[in-house]
């Protein structure tokens, strides 16, 4: 069990009659980026806040870096980093001052100026947080979350409000932290973010994990039927198949015998979004390829 950064079994958290977390199981291995996906109200935030030690659980076993977050002390908190989504810091302190100050809380913190550079705020180091844009303020939060050199980093919806370029550079930063050995537990609404970053992800629905796997294999994605589409003189045709390669070979032989192209050829696997939406049971979004092709 020593290779697990996070281990959760049978977690329950109820608010009155509402079962926010209802028998959730989760295992995060050391050194991986693990994404938790799920609609609002599925219990993601409650679960993560229990792991961060902000909330108490009603039942279940929780071990984070080998300790129970409910009882863990300062030494444990110095080994985790938390980037919250609901901080909106309008203080009169500069980025430089805050990051250097937070670095003092930890034994063996990272170099504060390097952290500021890593999140791309070097030019804003002397700017007071009040004057930062929303995206810059989020990056400051990330800097404060990683300055203590955490073994396990919690990122809660970290790129909300980022422009595409900022998001790309943020992804590079997170991947770099993973390569240094940091375990990362990420909650996100963006499936492209999970697909790009996560080694594994879990889909949470109604307070339980309904699927847990690498993004490419989630919900049996890799083995799902593919949809092949092509053009004929009579109009577009499509076919659902378990063996798209064989079908394409047949089409090539029939429609492009001279080694040319099959007109309008398209092979589509279900996207992470298709799989995700079917897993969370979104009405009307349950894309079933058999249905699409009729």
């Amino acid at each position: 069990m020593s290779t697990l950064a996070v281990r959760v079994t049978g977690l329950h958290k109820h608010y009155g009659p509402k079962r926010a977390v209802d028998g959730l199981d989760l295992e995060v291995e050391q050194g991986e980026i693990f994404a938790v996906l799920g609609p609002n109200g599925a219990g993601k935030t409650t679960t993560v806040e229990i792991l961060e030690g902000f909330r108490r659980r009603d039942a279940g076993e929780v071990s984070v870096l080998g300790e129970d977050p409910q009882r863990a002390g300062r030494a444990w908190r110095s080994r985790i980093g938390v980037v919250l989504q609901d901080v909106d810091d309008h203080a009169e302190l500069s980025v430089h001052e805050l990051v250097h100050h937070f670095a003092r809380y930890y034994p063996g913190a990272r170099d504060a100026d390097e952290v500021i550079a890593a999140v791309g705020l070097t030019e804003k180091a002397r700017t007071r947080t009040r004057q930062l844009s929303g995206g810059q303020r989020r990056r400051l939060d990330v800097a404060l979350g990683i300055v203590g050199r955490p073994e396990l980093l919690f990122l809660d919806e970290p790129t909300t409000g980022f422009d595409p370029e900022a998001r790309r550079s943020f992804w590079d930063l997170v991947a770099g932290l993973r390569d240094e050995g940091t375990t990362i537990l990420l909650t996100t609404h963006y499936l492209d973010e999970a697909e790009h970053l996560a080694d594994r992800c879990a889909v949470v629905r109604d307070g339980r994990v309904v699927a847990m796997d690498a993004p490419a294999r989630l919900g049996g994605r890799a083995s799902r039927h593919a949809l092949v589409r092509w053009q004929t003189p009579e109009g577009p045709r499509e076919e659902v198949t378990e063996a798209p390669t064989a079908l394409v070979a047949r089409l090539a032989a029939a429609l492009a015998p001279d080694g040319g192209e099959v007109p309008g050829l398209e092979v589509r696997r279900p996207t992470l979004e298709d799989v995700y939406l079917s897993l969370i049971g979104e009405q009307g979004a349950d894309i079933d390829l058999e249905e699409v092709s009729r």
Binding site: E29, E151, D199, A214
Partner: peptide
């Protein structure tokens, strides 16, 4: 994508001797 072949987490580990700063100093 595999999680089995991560490099040793050398840069994340800190010396076991590192102690937490005292409450008074942080105060």
């Amino acid at each position: 994508m595999s999680t089995a072949t991560r490099p040793a987490a050398a840069t994340t580990r800190r010396p076991a001797t590192a102690t937490l700063p005292s409450a008074l100093r942080l105060g």
